[in-house]
Amino acid sequence: MWPCRILLLLSILVCGCQRRDDGALHVAAAASLTDALQEVAAAYEAAGHGDVVLEFAGSQTIVTRAIAGAQPSLFILADEVQVERLSKAQLLAEHFTAFSSPLVLIVPRESYAVTSLDDLARPGVRVVLGAEEVPLGRYAREVLRRAGLLEAAQGNLISEEIDALGVLGKVISGQADGGIVYEVNAAGADHRVRTIPIPDAFDVAPQYYIAIPRSGPCLEEGRAFHTFLESEAGRSVMERHQFRFE
């Protein structure tokens, strides 16, 4: 008797999975876009376009899943390297640079061990950066390299984090005296960190990329969403979340 019930249960589970996002536009986007894109999607739906299913993850993860067979209608990635991976896997139709998010220096509230980028190179200061393997870490190192602080700051590293949240966590808890994240991350952390701008001369203004897949469901809707994002309505939302358009 009960093996039958288990079969029944299994079939329900399997069918349940297949039913997912039928006909809906599926956007896979870098995790740092979570708040901003949710707002854009709401506006997109309110403007009478169809439903949007948003999926947020690290850019690397998104591309890995796509290579394994996932078929989003649109990618928004924080890393050119990942766009190249899509391209190499013959999954990419075309891609565009979309907007950028400046980097900022963050320090714990009520801590003054770091008041400027230069302090990250001061002996005894504890620094947290993204790992070199993730875009955040590469951009932060590029900033430090341009400022001539890279070697000294790397000597002060206490941790290399996989994502911006990791860097934020180390700074919020005071484990690190300073770290570098996207401005959007710092804005999301509200008042739990202090933000210090990075001089324009050193900022690398990391780009986000919009990638349109070669095949898959709802490609037209994907392009429509891209268009909406670049429209006045989309831009104003993104800019409120500290993203910058050229």
Binding site: V128, L157, I158, S159, E160, E161, I162, G169, Q175
Partner: peptide
């Protein structure tokens, strides 16, 4: 480990 202690090759 990651949250409490961080991640640095050769040290943590």
């Amino acid at each position: 480990t990651m949250t409490f202690n961080g991640n640095l090759q050769g040290r943590t």
